[in-house]
Every structure is written in structure tokens, then in C-alpha cells.
Design a protein around this nucleic acid. Structure first.
Lengths: 408, 408
DNA sequence: AGTATTTTGGCCCAACCTCGAACAAATCCG
DNA sequence: CGGATTTGTTCGAGGTTGGGCCAAAATACT
């Protein structure tokens, strides 16, 4: 039971009924492909006549196509329908402090080309650089005309409507309009969004793993900080000022360790990669810098190295990682108590040590969840190898094709 | 951008367009009454012809009615339209451990009759008692046929679909089907929901205060415990197992005071009425009992008495209340960081001391919020005098009339 | 081999909806 | 009184679902 917003509503026109049904049909093909028209009609509980019209329109738009004829026990054989993803392409960009990643991929997130290069911090220069790289990548794959847009993930606050980057502290940007500048330089539509939110969009729109049937869920990503993306009824919760999901600064203990945000005892200060490393080395490393850390003897030492040591039997490393697991579970209890999601996705480097911490996460989670059902909430690992940020950036371009029309 | 749920969707029929527009028209009349057909057409950006048909249907259904003719500078005078609320009636029930409240009211939540009596804990007997009381109340007001349903608020977990009460610890109920039993005994449709969630529904559907234009907000009610109701895009967030909004057991400090839930350091253990009283008396009162507390000298002493003492200058009382204000602000920071709502409503006895704690709440809130915008989130008092639970129970009956049709 | 049956996919018409325009009603103003 | 203006209604055009019908395709039965 949703209340209609009397200040932001959408009247139905004489074409909305068909818009709705065409979009439903498209999503059902996507979900159940390969599928015949007759099967689609049964699933939608409408007549085959209507489906026939809808499908022909979708084929006309180039959104789906007819494939092989299927097998049937009796009667005429069905012609299977498929969603056209292979030859619908987009560019995904992940702009980070350390480097920028650029991927050419299709609408299912399948990678066709990947490039990485150091980030340019001057916005105008960055736009020029990106535009030429985009052009080159499209040309070298001969797909110039078929690219349908560019999706950009940035580490900072983005005004989703105007596309302006309000504040990206790690890049030193404030009030930067990357979207329109890049759109003008490339002639392609550009979508831009915060990196954490983008990961959730990847899960929503391109998720093919277990739990992808969940329609209200959270995505917890643990790296330098902790970000939580919230999806309710298939829609990303952005918040009034685009800052929803900042569970990272929920306190575990008000007088706990200092956090980079200025307060102390934040969840993030217990489970971020730096916190785990600090625990291993027995001293606070958060002041040294946000990225790879210099060990006493010289070389860089990252969370991946720590986990490798834990896996090879270093007892101190195991302890540091398991301690993180414990705090991870305690924080997840807060998220689950607060939102009672269908399931939880966890991403970040720490998931590569999941075999070491899973049972600890579950038991500490159960310590603070209120109901048994909440304690048993499914937790899925969102593996980081697949470039979740890039896939999310691609989802920015692909999603509007499949999203529900805005009604009422 | 909402994803269509391929396992729970709603195909558009040839009547859905009109269903949508009729419902929008109804809500606009509700929001802007008195309003003319022509004005409605302008707001909806459709032709007057369509509005004419929609309005006549709504009048035929008895949902709106034509009122006086308005004034116009030039031209034909408009006939004003109003939503029919005065003579659409329902019964609201609030079943609590201490007593049960019963109210006869109209669809705007306006009270026509109020009764309170001690709660009967045997479900079967309670149903018989309630049924006869409902009959008597309807008869004595001569409105038997016009009552459109019964809304019930209970302190416990309710399966919203089946209407079963899964667990109501304070009443000692498990797996009780109050809804169907009461429906059969009275012959009226019965809606039942958790008390905390019901307060949020009251805010959503019957809210006339400041901030009622908010479409994504939270409602924090502080009494014996702390419950948070979450509304996103005009829809109550129920959660996978109907337990969303349990922010009360988010930790402020893992090693803080013992909470009734078994864990320690929960927000609730800092700001509930008992916690405030305990702070005043300097000892843990939570073991004595959940309700009014016996002071050293004999008589019962409640949070209301404490606040009265604070208002009359008792320095120790002021300190206890302000301390609660500080922890209230710290906990609100968690809620606001997590969800970034349009605004926050706070309910409960503590709000009668708002003059003493507002500045403290705001400053401690600002301590832990991440952005300035979040720190400035509007906080509104949901005054408790108006029986929020009963108004919410009424909203259970009234809401389906105004809710958005389920589409796509 | 020939016929009946089943299933798919397309087509047509009735019922329903929005949309634009034309029209009647009501009111003011010169 | 006649023109101007605004409200509310009516009607035909164009778009959409819904149900029935039919051809095509493939299997099962006689």
C-alpha cells in the first residue's frame, strides 16, 4: 500500500497500459529466456494475441530477437525469444584516486575490453583525456555507432538529477560537472553516480548469483571505508540528500577507536582494511595514508597480503582477520535489525578470507539480532574479481531500458 | 528507477489507466480540497473532459461530493469538490497490556466516541468482549451500517498477509488469529498490524502537521522501548519477516547498560522511559517491571512525573531528561546516517520535555552525522495526546481507499 | 497414408480509455 | 443586451486490452 505523492505523480495516458505491459514482457523474457510467445502469455496471464503485438514491438525496437525453434511434445514448435544484450554496448568508467578503469561491455555486463591508467585530477583535462580514450576504444573494436552511453562511478557525492559531483574528497573535487562535459566531448549520453551506490545497481540489474531474486536487500562493501547500499522494492534508496546508506559511521562503541570522520567508535573504524591492518601491526595506521601501507622493512603491505598470511597459517594474521569478522557480524546485526532485508551481499577484499570468518560473522550476528529469522538472514559474497564498480557503471546505462515505467 | 519484480508483477488491463487516474484525482481532491473540476484538470495536466468522467465516477462510488459553488473573478463559478470523510466511519482498537482503547472515528481520524477498559488476555474471550462492545458503540451512535471496518493495533509481531499475531510477548500470545475471529464475530472487515508500524501509517495517511508532505521519512517512538517506522516513497518498509525498523537495539556502546533484549548497550537502554527513570534514581529499575514504578516512599512514579519535576526546576530531574536527550540525538544520528530521510518524527512521553532537550538533541545529532545537510534534517514532534495508535488503527481501514493501485 | 488433435502465432472486432475540439451553461462587464 | 471568459459536458478519433477465430505446424491415432 503506497501513498500517491500529490506533488509528484504521473497520470496515465492512453499508451501507458501498453508501456507497462511491454516493459513487463521485456523483463520476463530477460528472466526466463529462452521463452516462447505462448509461454510468455501464460506467465503474464494475458492472451497470446496481446503478447504477439508486444513482442513484435520489442523486436521492432531492437530489444529482443527471435532465436531457434524449441521442442514441444505435441503441436507446433515454439520460436524462442531472447533479450538483445550481446550487441548493445556501453562504456563503463571507474574514476578512483589510485587509477581510472575503463571497460567496454555489453548490456549484460560482459567485458569486451579493459584499460586502466592513472587518474588526471584536473576535470577539464580529464574530460579531454577520457573522450579520446573512449573514441579510441570504440574505434579499435569497430563499434562506434552501437555504443549507447557512458556510465561513470566516482568516489563522492553526486546529485543524481543534475549529474553534478558535489564533493569527492579523495579526488579534491567540489561542484564538478563531469557528466555534461563528457557528454558534449563524446556525443554520447553520460550517467554518473556514487561508487557505493553503483555497486548496488550492479547487484540489482546485472546480478546473476544466488539471491538475485531478492527484491529488497542491502549491499555492504568493505574496503577503505564501509558503504551500505539499500534496495527497497527493486529501487535504490538514495536519501533526501543522496547520502542514504552511511551505516559505516554507526557506532559500535561511542568511546571506541578514532574514525576518519572525526567521531570515534564507528563500525568503519573496526572493520575497514586499515583497521584490520592496524590490528595486525598493533598500532594505528590510519594516519599514514588511505592506501597501501609501508611495512617496517620497506615494501608495501596490503590487506590482500595480510589475508594471504592468514591463509598460510600466520596466527597473528588469522586473529586480526577473525577479529574483523566479529565486528563485521556485530555491525551487520545493526543493518539487519534496522531494515530486515531479504538478503545481504558483502563485497570487498575481506570476502577473500570468508572461509576464515564466516562462522564468526554468523555467531556475532546472532548475538545482537532480535529474532531468529533475522539471525538467519542469507549472506552472499559479492566477489570483487568481477569489477563490481565497472559493472555498476554499465548498469547505469543499461537500467533505463528495463526499469518499470513511473506511474501514479 | 525501479526494477520490475519478475515473480510478482501486475499486468495492466484496459481499465488500469482509468483506475490510476481516478485514484490520482481522489488524492488531489483530498490534498487540495475544496477544488473545482477545472482546477483538478490543470493540476493533472489532462483535459476537463477526462476529469469530468473521473469525478462523476468518484461521486458515484461515494468517495467525494459536490459542495458549495466557489467565487471566480470572471466566468462561470466552479463547483467545489470535497472528499467524503465525515460520514465514512470505522472502529479503531489499541490492545495493550495495561488496557484496551476503542475509538469510533471517521476516515480523517476525527474522534466520535472513545472507550477504554481492561484487556482480556484469553483470545477467544477477548473476541467475544470486543464484538459486543463494537456492536454497542455502533448502535449507540446509530451508525451500524456505515462502519466500514475495524483496525487493530497490537504490541507484537503480526503477519501482515494472514493477519495472524505471531508473537506478542507482553500479552503472552503466540500464533493467535485475532483478525478472522473478530471479523466473523462482527461481520466487519478487520485489519491488524503492529503498534509501532501503525503509528507510522497514521503519520502517512492522516498526517496534517508540518512535514506531512514528506514522502520518505522515519517515525521514532520512545516509550518503554524504541521503535522506528520507516516510510520510503510513501510505502511502509515492513521487512522480510515484518521486523524492519528495530533501531532500538542498535548499540551505542557494546559494553553499555544491559538491555531487556539480552544484549547490552542498545540505544533503547539509554533512552527508554525506564532508562531515564533509572538515571534519575541512580539504580537500574528495568528489573522491577515494565510499567509504572514504585518509588521508595510508596506511590507510583512515572516518566510524566519526572518530566513535571524537571519543568518545575528539579535539577536532578533536568539532568536525567537532558541526558536522555543527548543519547536520543546520538541514536537519531544513526537513523539519519543510515536512511537520510526527508524528515524525522519523534513520538512518546519524552516529547513533552522537548523544550528542555531540543538543543541538546540537535547538537549531539550533529556530533555524529556525516554531512551538514543530514545534521539539519527536520525533526517534528508527533504529539502523543492525539492517540497515535488509535489513529493508526483507523488508517488501516482508511488507507486502501486512497492507496496507489499496484502496477507493473 | 490420412485424419484428428494439440499447440503456436497472427488477425479481427468489441469494449474501454485518453485526447482534442466543439458546445452548453453560468457569470461578469461595457 | 451582446461579447468575453470560465466551467463543465459531450462526442468522435485514435490507441489498448480481451476474447474468439483461423492458419500453420507438428504429433498421435486409425
Amino acid at each position: 500500500m503506497r501513498k500517491i505523492n500529490p506533488h509528484d505523480f504521473h497520470v496515465a495516458t492512453r499508451s501507458t497500459s501498453r508501456d507497462i505491459n511491454r516493459r513487463i514482457a521485456l523483463n520476463l523474457v530477460r528472466e526466463h529466456q529462452p521463452i516462447s510467445r505462448a509461454d510468455l502469455a501464460r506467465r503474464m496471464r494475458v492472451t497470446r494475441g496481446i503478447v504477439s503485438v508486444l513482442v513484435n514491438e520489442l523486436i521492432g525496437e531492437g530489444l529482443i530477437y527471435e532465436g531457434a525453434t524449441g521442442e514441444a511434445a505435441r503441436g507446433r514448435k515454439p520460436t524462442f525469444l531472447h533479450v538483445k544484450t550481446r550487441d548493445r554496448l556501453c562504456i563503463a568508467l571507474d574514476v578512483r584516486f589510485s587509477r581510472t578503469f575503463m571497460m567496454l561491455c555489453d548490456f549484460s555486463g560482459h567485458q569486451l575490453a579493459l584499460e586502466m591508467f592513472s587518474t588526471i585530477f584536473d576535470p577539464a583535462e580529464l574530460v579531454r583525456d577520457l573522450a579520446s580514450r573512449v573514441r579510441r576504444m570504440l574505434n579499435s573494436h569497430g563499434v562506434d555507432s552501437r555504443c549507447e552511453g557512458i556510465g561513470v562511478a566516482v568516489p563522492g557525492m553526486v546529485d543524481h538529477r543534475t549529474g553534478r559531483i558535489l564533493n569527492a574528497p579523495t579526488l579534491g573535487w567540489k561542484q564538478v560537472d563531469l557528466r555534461d562535459a563528457l557528454a558534449q566531448a563524446t556525443g554520447l549520453p553520460v550517467h554518473i553516480e556514487n561508487a557505493a551506490k553503483v555497486c548496488v545497481l550492479a547487484q540489482t540489474w546485472l546480478g546473476r548469483s544466488r539471491g538475485s531474486t531478492a527484491h529488497s536487500f542491502v549491499h555492504v562493501s568493505v574496503s577503505d571505508g564501509v558503504g551500505v547500499g539499500i534496495v527497497f522494492n527493486g529501487e535504490l534508496v538514495r536519501g533526501h540528500d543522496n547520502t542514504a546508506g552511511e551505516f559505516g559511521h554507526v557506532p559500535l562503541s561511542l568511546d571506541g577507536p578514532k574514525c576518519m570522520c572525526g567521531a570515534s567508535g564507528c563500525w568503519e573504524a573496526y572493520v575497514s582494511n586499515i583497521a584490520t591492518l592496524s590490528r595486525y601491526f598493533g598500532r594505528d595506521l590510519s594516519k599514514i595514508g588511505p592506501k597501501p601501507l609501508v611495512e617496517a622493512n620497506g615494501g608495501t603491505f596490503t590487506i590482500a597480503d595480510l589475508i594471504a598470511r592468514a591463509h598460510s597459517g600466520d596466527a597473528k594474521a588469522v586473529l586480526a582477520v577473525q577479529s574483523t569478522g566479529r565486528y563485521l557480524g556485530l555491525g551487520l546485526a545493526t543493518v539487519i535489525n534496522a531494515l530486515n532485508p531479504d538478503c545481504v551481499f558483502v563485497g570487498g577484499e575481506i570476502t577473500t578470507a570468508w572461509d576464515l570468518i564466516e562462522s564468526i560473522v554468523r555467531s556475532s550476528l546472532a548475538e545482537r539480532t532480535l529474532t531468529e529469522a533475522a539471525a538467519n538472514t542469507a549472506i552472499h559474497i559479492a566477489s570483487a574479481v568481477e569489477y563490481p564498480r565497472l559493472r555498476g557503471a554499465a548498469a547505469l546505462v543499461a537500467a533505463p531500458t528495463f526499469a518499470a515505467p513511473r506511474i501514479a
